[in-house]
Design a binder for these strands. Structure first.
Length: 568
RNA sequence: UGGGGAGUGGUCUAAUGGUAGGACAACAGAUUCUGAUUCUGUCAGGUGAGGGUUCGAUUCCUUCCUCCCCAACCA
């Protein structure tokens, strides 16, 4: 027999890989690839950043290069150390290690020196216009800008003024340093952009050493060049900043500041996800207005939220890989993310039984006090994962969802007169039920077939349904949090006139239940992941104490019965 | 109305002048001690529209249309 070898079709290259491979082939950077992930420490990372992280680190890894983590901390009024720790943690959790950790603030002196150089070259000037005046002079899409009256200051005066700005002689906002490019440019970014502003605020790294702070467009490219980044990957909205990125670096005509070849900025489409919002501002509003419990609420698309929800780093990386890299605006379907975590957990997660909405079931012909200890596998296919002991007794809990007093058609589960298998245990038939005063079914009376202990009938008869259960006397109560999409609408930003995106917040995005768990789960630790058979994947919330276990539902199992039923 | 980008099934993404392919979703069936998983099959786009070049166009040219980004001393 000849084995047909599955030919692994190599994935075609995305446009960034094509650029990198071309550069590698031409020897542009002596065959070196250097990228960086440049978060501003002013918020928590979300899954959109995860995509960027995977691209930057993943590509460098693929081509034997390295990636730096660089905090873009040029605006101390918005930034805080609180965020740098969480950012580090999130990148590491995703499974990436940076070659070097830097801060744009590490380069403040070099940035300053280069700025003086630009002034001396007549490429930058100190401008005294107020911010409103500056805006006015800049013009708009329809009208070209006007030159600032300060544009023609002498080099000597500019240098003197800039040094005094640096010395802290002027109040906040009194003057700025501007690049002298072209106030009439159709590209607004080139209309003499600001390089420095005066801000006498404490910086989380440099303290009070600097009363002036560089702007992003100036600092970013220079930082890249200093670190000898080869490919500076960012999102689409920076596309028309690229001429400016190049301009700043190209002014080093004598090559005194930067090693050539200079880094190249490449833009890709940021990730959007259905049923959620992604902007820092809106995420912050969700937190501030109490729609969620915090940045790491399991419903948030933040990395810490996904982590707490029970997502694995592998699944997030797989997702980033599958959504691809391109330049068209895109909105990925959450179902793809869910597919990725199910795929990972299906293979990894040990199985256990947990009854989410308990309904008492009494096996009338099973002797009270009689306990059958069953040994059930942690994984149906992976025997190497071992087994756990599960007690089977007269009184058990089953899920309310698994009983119907009046069985609809195609109902495989329990109903009066129906026989089902208790997973891993035995066959039981429903012989009677007990209702409370309101008519609610509160207890089921069943008989079991003792010959079916272990799960199969001695006469080989088949039952269509298998349900999960937990011995009542051994059950461990726990809080279980069921999550749904945070927004009911695919695109929460698609609001009708007079509406608000918050109108689409799903009122049922969190449902907390007291569940009954099989005893093997009692020793579960924060972060442990399980498949609760027939219901979904769950992980232990860090809120869990030894006294009270808390589980988060990461994602439900696919539910084809729900589909059948919803179709009638 | 200036400038910069982008248009391929419901959603992502390939095909770089030669049969429009894959993933997710959806649908149908088989297997199953999880209505899960797995497996099989189906579905659906003639590539935003028109024109042109070509034996042949998603790919080249052209006109048009639609969508996104830019007028912070934010990044």
């Amino acid at each position: 027999m000849t084995q047909t070898q599955p030919v692994p079709e190599p994935r075609s290259l995305n446009f960034i890989e094509e650029i990198m491979e071309a550069d590698l082939a031409s020897g542009k950077h002596q065959g070196r690839i250097g990228t960086r992930f440049p978060p501003e420490p002013n918020g928590y990372l979300h899954i959109g950043h995860a995509k960027s992280i995977c691209i930057n680190f993943g590509l460098a890894q693929k081509y034997g290069g390295s990636t730096n983590l660089r905090f873009d901390d040029t605006n101390p009024v918005k930034e805080d150390v609180e965020y740098v720790d969480s950012i580090r943690e999130d990148v590491e959790w995703l499974g990436f290690r940076w070659a070097e950790e830097h801060y744009a603030s590490d380069y403040f002196q070099q940035l300053y020196d280069y700025a003086e150089y630009l002034i001396q070259a007549g490429k930058a000037y100190v401008c005294d216009l107020t911010d409103e005046e500056t805006r006015e002079y800049r013009g708009n899409f329809h009208t070209p800008g006007k030159e600032s009256p300060y544009r023609s200051r002498s080099v000597g005066e500019n240098l003197d003024l800039f040094r005094r700005m640096r010395a802290g002689e002027f109040p906040d906002g009194a003057r700025v340093l501007r690049a002298k490019i072209d106030v009439q440019s159709p590209n607004m970014n080139l209309r003499d952009p600001l390089m420095y502003r005066i801000r006498r605020v404490h910086h989380h790294r440099t303290g009070d050493a600097w009363p002036i702070y560089p702007m992003y467009d100036y600092a970013h490219g220079v930082s890249d060049a200093i670190e000898r980044i080869t490919h500076s990957i960012c999102t689409l909205e920076f596309e028309d900043h690229r001429p400016l990125y190049d301009w700043f670096l190209n002014q080093d005509v004598e090559g005194r500041f930067f090693t050539r070849p200079l880094p190249r900025q490449i833009e890709f489409a940021r990730l959007n996800l259905t049923h959620t919002v992604m902007s820092k501002r809106r995420l912050l509003l969700l937190v501030q207005e109490g729609h969620v419990t915090g940045w790491n609420d399991p419903r948030m698309p933040t990395i810490c939220g996904l982590r707490r929800r029970g997502y694995t780093p592998e699944s997030v990386r797989a997702f980033a890989e599958r959504v691809g890299v391109a330049k068209r605006d895109m909105v990925a379907d959450v179902s793809l993310l869910e597919h990725c975590i199910r795929e990972d957990l299906e293979a990894q997660a040990p199985r256990a039984m947990a009854v989410l909405r308990p309904l008492k079931l009494v096996i009338t012909n099973l002797t009270e006090g009689e306990t059958h200890w069953l040994e059930l596998p942690f994984h149906p296919e992976k025997t190497e994962m071992g087994t756990r002991k599960v007690p089977f007794t007269r009184e058990i809990w089953i899920d309310q969802d698994d009983f119907r007093e009046e069985a609809p058609k195609k109902w495989f589960r329990l109903a009066p007169g129906a026989e089902v298998r208790l997973r891993g245990a035995a066959l039981v038939r429903c012989e009677g039920l007990v209702k409370d005063d309101s008519g609610q079914v509160v207890e089921l009376h069943c008989t079991w077939d003792p010959g079916s202990l272990g799960g199969n009938a001695p006469d080989g008869r088949k039952v269509k349904g298998t349900i999960h259960w937990v011995s009542a006397s051994h059950a461990v109560p726990a809080e279980v949090r069921l999550y749904e999409q945070l927004f009911t609408q695919e695109d929460p930003m698609d609001v009708p006139e007079g509406g608000d995106w918050r109108d689409f917040i799903n009122p049922h995005s969190l449902e907390a239940l007291t569940a009954q768990l099989e005893p093997s789960l009692a020793s579960a630790k924060a972060g442990d992941r399980f498949q609760f058979e027939r219901t979904g994947y769950f992980s232990v919330d860090p809120d869990s104490g030894s006294a009270a276990l808390v589980f988060n539902r990461t994602v439900g199992l696919k539910d084809s019965w729900a589909k059948i039923e919803s179709k009638g």
